[in-house]
Design a protein around this nucleic acid. Sequence first.
DNA 1: TAGTGGTCTAGACCACTCC
DNA 2: GAGTGGTCTAGACCACTAA
Lengths: 238, 238
Amino acid sequence: MEQSLYIQLSEKLIEKINEMEVGELLPSERKLAEIYGVSRTTVRLALDHLEVRGYILRQHGRGSIVVDYHKSLINLSEMYSFTEQMKALGQEPSTKLIGHSIINTNEKLEKIFLNGEQKFIKLIRLRSSDGIPLMYEESFIPFSKFQDIKIKDIEKRSLYGIFKEDFNEVVKLAQEEFSADLVNEEVARQLDVSPDSAVLQIYRTTINIKNETIEYTESKADPSKFSYRTVHHNHIEY
Amino acid sequence: MEQSLYIQLSEKLIEKINEMEVGELLPSERKLAEIYGVSRTTVRLALDHLEVRGYILRQHGRGSIVVDYHKSLINLSEMYSFTEQMKALGQEPSTKLIGHSIINTNEKLEKIFLNGEQKFIKLIRLRSSDGIPLMYEESFIPFSKFQDIKIKDIEKRSLYGIFKEDFNEVVKLAQEEFSADLVNEEVARQLDVSPDSAVLQIYRTTINIKNETIEYTESKADPSKFSYRTVHHNHIEY
DNA sequence: TAGTGGTCTAGACCACTCC
DNA sequence: GAGTGGTCTAGACCACTAA
């Protein structure tokens, strides 16, 4: 599959940016268009892409400024994928499947999935990076859609990869909610933290291209080892 | 100041979307261009704006689908402003200034501000919504830039409003980090939660248009009353 | 196959920054 | 005033969805 021009251009520009210092200015949009033989529109699409991902900031009348926010970001507007994010930060992710079962629906799951599904597959996973446990995750996926999932694959492939390759379910969007909680005994043991310590609680709902909910996950992260960073751009006036 | 065409168009489209049902399709981009007498580029800019803010989803070959994610979101790519976000959710925000002092720099602040600033103004605020305390915030702003700040205004105006109107400092971008912690005695008392309960810990650094750090804030939120939601769109392949 | 959103071009004018 | 990013136009072709 041939990538679009502006994506290719943004990749070339990332290489260039990696050789530059924070605070330096990129060539102007018109110059970049000339250098790479594309229209200014395409250059702008590539720069939009880089701005959202924390490689540059743009300043009206001045230019595109190199920044390094991308280095410390778990997430910008990209989809969350533990595996991908850890690799991007130069760490070696691993997943251990602690348990799996088929459960009946309950009030909470009904409110989330809204499709009358009666049974769900529950997956309990421990996520580690460079061998250190970071997150304890309980995931729920509808049985009718994913009953043929290969349990053995779950430790080796990402859940979203399995969804796409084996079930043709493409994740379009995820909603996440952040909160905090105290650990229980089981989670404390798995994460190797003291009982009654605080954990970062993340609730994630993922939605496919047809607007159906296909996954709900509750994660508990050790706050001393895993935190979540994001960047907001100011688009509105104050 | 005249707003750009695509912003005006996006506002008109929000009115239209508010009269539609979730799941309905907007007119096609070409039709919208014709209806509103603008180019398709302008329509696309307006739709980009709406997609990022959770009003629509776009599906290649199908159309722009009305969704209501904007209703449950504390944040999309908009800047974080407690006051604005609470109002958007239909709640009445209030701020109580618990304390303020001038402090000397320390190792942590030096690493964050990186400009050799020697003194900082420290503000301790309690943020409430409809009279219920949600967040305990400690903010640090450079003394040399903001020494003339009117302390009395802080309970009445938003900090970012004061920055802009009184100091001509426009916030360009904010970085936030989410973690979790146990409350201490003072915070437990202020938030009216039991000692040793967990709080959502938020660290925020805000940066102005010249790339200078102008504020650093540590917030502790009561997780039973305040959580943080966000949406990620899938731009990459899995 | 018709219609949709996604990408891309060439060109124009405006608003802003910096000298 | 020169150069920059921001907005806008008119038009084209491609890739995808749905009937």
